[in-house]
């Protein structure tokens, strides 16, 4: 698109305007997707609990999320008098922004990403490690007990599970030999006979299981939603929030969930590639395959949320530090050992 604008603008400005349009092309559909996925989440949850779920606003209740959005938009923003005003308002903005910026490196189709950088996976890791600040700041600046407990829980939880996520990502990177997300997807093409995807690799499949569970913990979805456990902490770090500030937390949370589903699809199940390396399947555009995989993983997330009871906090920490950390560390050794054994002297 930059080239089209260079027709009548200097290169710098053309690049600037084209990038802003690209960002909107990703961010606006993402917001729509978040609205619809909240509806899907509620519907799936309701179906598993033998309820109807949202079914009043619009056909099949499809407009429910927009009605909710309008409702919070019209509410008054309440700032507690003892809250730290600046940080209180900054926290939801951080959560929301961080949830959006990661999408810059996600490849939607062969060669189609906003920014095709060679440290793509590190960028994802960096941005997701920023996500914890929104929660910590919200909890601390509310100047209230439950949000503060929640912030401390959330910080410990996210830092713990980031460790095992890091090791999982390292084993994927070792296997593909690149940090570029597009390169990782392309490296999965027909790598396992007729199958596309690292998930079909027996050495990486256990890593995917660790990644799936860790990504639920990282996005604070049930059964790991200790930070907003309503039976103990009201609504956790969101307790003091109302109106749009609350909505930003919600949007950011679900954008993060979709992102984690996308990473599951991209890193382990071939991203925009069809699952089977068979020519007619490539007729379907890559973005459709990606969306199908994202929706499948989102269904898994909802399924788990609807059926698995919440963890106790010591169980959560035990799972992160005593099971996932040694397991993923062991697999990093296993994967690198296997690669050394089979690929010594072979240029990657």
């Amino acid at each position: 698109m930059t080239s089209w604008f260079t027709g009548f603008l200097p290169y710098g400005w053309a690049w600037f305007i084209a990038t802003i349009i690209d960002i909107l092309v990703i961010a606006l559909p993402l917001m729509l997707a978040v609205a619809m996925i909240i509806y899907a989440d509620r519907k799936i949850w309701a179906a598993m609990a033998l309820r109807r779920g949202p079914n009043v606003v619009g056909p099949f209740g499809l407009m429910q999320s927009f009605a909710d959005g309008l409702k919070v938009f019209l509410q008054e923003t309440i700032i507690p008098s003892s809250a730290n005003k600046g940080l209180f308002l900054l926290a939801p903005i951080i959560t929301f922004t961080v949830a959006l910026i990661v999408w810059a490196v996600v490849p939607f189709q062969a060669g189609v990403a906003l920014s095709n950088i060679n440290v793509g996976l590190l960028y994802v890791l960096a941005a997701s490690s920023l996500g914890v600040y929104g929660v910590i700041l919200a909890g601390w600046s509310s100047n209230s007990k439950y949000p503060f407990y929640s912030a401390i829980r959330a910080a410990a939880q996210m830092v713990s599970y980031e460790v095992s996520i890091g090791f999982v990502l390292i084993s994927v990177v070792l296997w593909s030999g690149t940090f570029n997300l597009g390169g990782i997807v392309e490296g999965q093409k027909a790598y396992y006979g007729f199958l596309n995807g690292h998930g079909f690799n027996p050495l990486l499949f256990p890593m995917w299981v660790v990644f799936l569970i860790s990504s639920m913990a990282e996005t604070q979805r049930a059964p790991f939603d200790l930070a907003e456990a309503e039976s103990e902490l009201v609504a956790g770090y969101q307790t003091e929030y109302s109106s749009m500030a609350f909505a930003l937390f919600w949007l950011g949370e679900y954008a993060n969930v979709i992102l984690m589903c996308t990473l599951n699809a991209t890193l382990f199940w071939g991203g925009y590639l069809p699952p089977i390396d068979w020519a007619p399947l490539y007729m379907v555009p890559g973005i459709i395959w990606l969306f199908a995989k994202i929706l499948f993983f989102f269904f898994v997330f909802s399924w788990v949320r609807a059926t698995v009871p919440r963890y106790r906090y010591d169980q959560l920490m035990r799972l992160g530090w005593k099971i996932f950390l040694p397991l993923s560390l062991f697999f990093v050794f296993l994967v690198s050992g296997f690669l050394m054994w089979t690929r010594v002297g072979v240029p990657a």
């Binding site: 950088i117 890791l125 920023l130 910590i136 503060f148 980031e162």
Partner: peptide, 25 residues
């Protein structure tokens, strides 16, 4: 860019979180 990402992951994502944790408590 590699150093930049490491700076964010290690210092912002881990060290400063622990710092903040301790200072808040």
């Amino acid at each position: 860019e590699f150093i930049a990402m490491l700076l964010v992951i290690v210092y912002v994502g881990a060290v400063a979180v622990l710092f903040l944790f301790v200072v808040m408590m």
